[in-house]
Amino acid sequence: MPVNTENMVKVFGRPESLTDARFTYCPGCHHGILTRIIAKAIDELGIAERTVTIAPVGCSVFAYLWYKCDAVQASHGRASAVATGLKRANKDLIVISYQGDGDFASIGTAESIHAANRGENITVIFVNNQIYGMTGGEMAPTTLVGQRTTTTPDGRDPAYFGYPIRFSELIATLDAPVYVTRQALYDTRRIMDAEKAIKKAISYQVEGKGYSLVEVLSTCPTNWHMSPLEANRHVAEVVTEAFPLGDLVDRGG
């Protein structure tokens, strides 16, 4: 049945800088919410015409399809180094690097830390869903203690596999980063907080203040073997215990 919107005003629509492409993510996956939030920030800051997004390797490899912005696809883990090259070559570009936990906090550890330590004037969005989604649900550096994955079938035993790495806390020990924060998307309040944080992080770059890292706790209903709603509850009740939400550094104000 068609919905009549005559004499009504649109209060929520698709961000201008999002393309019409349909997301390739699984039902309920937070990547889509996050993509919309980034597009909204790009719109509000009026920077679509000078933004370059970096698509990583993993489920978000298609990120170059989502924004009406220039984009480059980076090899696994190297997005922060690619961002460095782009920004150093052209400081007028707004460079947004989108990276998962395996990408940012495992294979790309060196590139991630050193881009932050150089205080590169870039924005890194670090999506932490505690698992390798695209390759079939293997253990990530952020996989929780006891969490079952396809490579920790009996649950992550810290004596054998080590503990989940709190990468944002590591980055927060450095002197250069201007903004390091951890956000989540499991309810509307958290989504609104994440919107503010991402806009702030990108605006710091626009103002030339330096490196920002926004870690976003995300879900993987498919590989967690949960419904989207159960996955949201899991983030709220369990994941945030291991990865507390909030700002770790804010030197931009």
Binding site: M8, V9, F12, I33
Partner: peptide
Amino acid sequence: AMTCPDVAIEVYREK
């Protein structure tokens, strides 16, 4: 709409 991971929802309000 805020929660929708596929940006599939538009919202309208009465003037």
